[in-house]
């Protein structure tokens, strides 16, 4: 048998490309769509706010100044106001000065500071919950779509049942049962959106599993695990990234809604949903305490939706 190694010529190995550089470069793809750029810009703004919250927030988010209750935006803190603090050394008075640029809420807390800290709260819990939902959804979807047969039947039926619950009713039932906390929210989101993600992944896998390169992997005896995670999953990433952006936006809304309904993170967490719930009675007297958090959450969700739209547009161009 001839051997290809006999084929003379000296071998010079080409440089292996650096995978990290490749991943970083793919982020630059965003530049191809204006819509995606706008989305990214707003998103980066909020991420920076969240990361820098301890530095840029003028006041602690829970600090109450009774004189500033429902104060209008731009009201300066009256001179001589001080916070009485009980320390080991005794009672200390810490003077408070400056201006409540976005006004005060019904307990006299600074709306701006609460909004800044609220960004941190939402940008921790929404990605966390979405991430867990994706882990579960991707695993189930890969199994159902690749294995087919009874695995698919069981997982799909189960998903259908969960999806047939009106989503907020499901949250209410889950949170009534387990009580309101950050972990419950993550669990509830995973439980409620996992099946939806599974459905999408399954659909993608059903298409991708018939590709010839999957057959090629099968005919060289690759394990199911290798085929699912190496041959199939990376090729489903486009639609999944788009869906993840949308779902992140949706989770942000959900966390806001739960906060608004009093089922979310317990007060005094400066969650945007909580802020709106706490001040909604004052919507006609001191609208600033609800309107600004509304704009904040809407702009964050808008950023994610624009990003998803832009990414979809970019992926269609190729």
């Amino acid at each position: 048998m001839a051997d290809i190694d006999a084929a003379g010529a000296e071998i010079v190995l080409p440089k292996r490309p650096n995978p990290v550089v490749g991943v970083l470069k793919s982020f630059l793809l965003v530049r191809e769509s204006k819509v995606a750029m706008v989305g990214t810009a707003i998103l980066v703004f909020w991420v920076l706010i969240a990361v820098l919250a301890p530095v840029i927030a003028p006041y602690p988010p829970t600090q109450q100044v009774s004189e500033m209750r429902n104060a209008a935006p731009g009201t300066p803190v009256p001179a001589g106001t001080a916070l009485i603090s009980f320390t080991e050394q005794g009672v200390a008075e810490i003077p408070i000065e400056g201006t409540y640029w976005l006004g005060g809420d019904r307990l006299g807390r600074d709306v701006l500071s609460r909004m800044i800290w609220g960004a941190q709260s939402v940008l921790i819990y929404a990605p966390l919950a979405t991430f867990f939902a994706y882990m579960v959804g991707i695993t189930m979807g890969l199994l159902a779509g690749y294995k087919r047969g009874w695995v698919d039947d069981v997982l799909s039926r189960l998903g259908d049942v969960i999806l047939s619950f009106p989503i907020l009713v499901l949250y209410v039932v889950i949170i009534t049962t387990f009580g309101a906390s950050g972990i419950t929210i993550v669990l509830a989101v995973t439980f409620a959106s996992g099946p939806g993600i599974m459905r999408i992944v399954r659909g993608l896998v059903l298409d991708l599993r018939n590709r010839d390169y999957v057959a090629a992997a099968q005919t060289r005896g690759e394990s199911s695990l290798y085929i699912m995670f190496v041959e199939i999953l990376p090729n489903a990433r486009g639609p999944l990234i788009v869906d993840a952006c949308l779902r992140l936006g949706y989770t942000t809304i959900t966390i806001g809604v739960l906060g608004f309904l009093g089922l979310g993170l317990p007060p005094p967490d400066p969650n945007w949903g909580n802020m709106i719930a706490e001040n909604r009675e004052a919507v006609l007297t001191a609208p600033h305490s609800t309107v600004f958090p509304c704009l904040a959450i809407s702009s964050l969700v808008l950023a994610l939706n624009l990003l998803a739209d832009g990414l979809r547009e970019i992926s269609l161009k190729d």
């Binding site: 490309p17 590709r211 010839d212 390169y213 090629a216 041959e231 990376p234 090729n235």
Partner: peptide
Amino acid sequence: NDTLNPSMT
């Protein structure tokens, strides 16, 4: 167009 995995070199 199907025979090679698009995400690998």
